[in-house]
Computed example of a mutant assay.
Amino acid sequence: MRKILLASDLDNTLIHSYKHKREGDICVEMLNGAEQGFMSAKVHAQLSSLPDNVELVPLTTRSVAQFERIQLPEGCYSRAITTNGAILIEKGIQNEKWRMSEKHYADELMPLMEKLRAELDGNEKLNVVRIVDEMYLYISCAKPEYVGEFMDRYSTLTELDVMLSGRKIYFLPPEINKGKALKRLAQGEKDAFIFAAGDSTIDLPMLEAVDLAIIPEALDSLLENPNRSVFKGDGDFAEFVIETLLDKCKKITIKRHF
């Protein structure tokens, strides 16, 4: 049976914050003793019993520490990629060769990131100014109305890719992205179908690089890849992602049978 590899973003794709918790949701993340992240009970059950030919690979911009807070259903994945593609984790262990090859790109731009961090640190309009896993710079605005100010000032000012997600702004080395990471991972996946699911512009590099992109309607006009399934409903995007995956899996199985 032909393998399907699903590279999936986490936040607002497979999981959602406590702010969007609904009745029946399952807590999958704790932060400082408080419930932080949730998953639909239906998705949780589906991830617990994925078909044998499906491999889920979480591919997130979260740091290693932030990723390790998440408790996905036991056994639903063995490999994950964090830090926007910079760090591969296999059965709980970081792949040092992968990390060092990506760190090379970060090191080239680290003086610039350090300069920006020093400039931004202590700004009362920011809650967080941090270099993440020695790979990229991240800031979080204290209020939504501050986002435009920082994007206007920095989006074309640096050699870094400046990406926005809500109140968070990421300063990313161009060579470290989810698309490049997925292509690298897929080199060892001969004849596999490669799917990807994501909800933000940071996910676009990986969504462009796959046999099927699973996206919300907000990304429809931004994505060039014609091979896509678009969520246009008001329900749970995570449920749409897994249902699309399972539907494609059935069709591939039927096609192979005949």
Rank of each mutant, 00 (worst) to 15 (best):
L56K: 08
T61P: 11
D211W: 08
F193R: 10
M1L: 04
H16M: 08
R256T: 01
P111H: 05
A218N: 15
L88K: 12
K19Y: 13
I215Y: 00
R130W: 06
Q94D: 09
E189V: 10
D247C: 13
L50C: 01
L204C: 11
F38G: 03
L222K: 15
P144L: 06
F231T: 01
D161S: 13
V28Y: 09
T60H: 08
R69V: 03
Q187T: 07
K42V: 14
D152M: 11
P173Y: 04
K42Q: 10
Y170S: 13
K115F: 02
L59F: 02
M1G: 14
G37F: 01
I131W: 02
K3W: 00
K97F: 10
L5A: 08
A34Q: 14
E159Q: 15
L185Q: 03
E55I: 05
A106R: 08
F67H: 12
P205Q: 05
V128Q: 14
R130L: 13
D121M: 13
L157R: 15
A142R: 14
D152A: 11
C76M: 11
D191W: 02
E68G: 12
V210A: 01
C249I: 00
A238L: 00
T244D: 00
V129Y: 03
T253K: 09
Y18F: 09
A118E: 15
E217Y: 14
K143L: 10
A181Q: 03
D152N: 07
S40A: 10
Y154P: 05
E208C: 00
L112A: 14
F240H: 04
V132R: 08
D203N: 11
D220N: 15
Y105I: 02
V129T: 06
E243V: 07
K168L: 06
D247Q: 11
I15S: 02
M1K: 06
I202D: 02
M110G: 09
I26C: 08
P174M: 05
I26L: 14
S63N: 06
R153Q: 12
S40C: 07
G92L: 00
I214W: 12
I93V: 06
L207W: 04
K125V: 00
E23F: 12
I214F: 05
G179L: 10
K143P: 01
V43D: 01
D203G: 03
D236I: 04
N53V: 03
A45H: 09
L56F: 05
F67T: 03
L126N: 03
P174H: 08
P58H: 13
S63M: 03
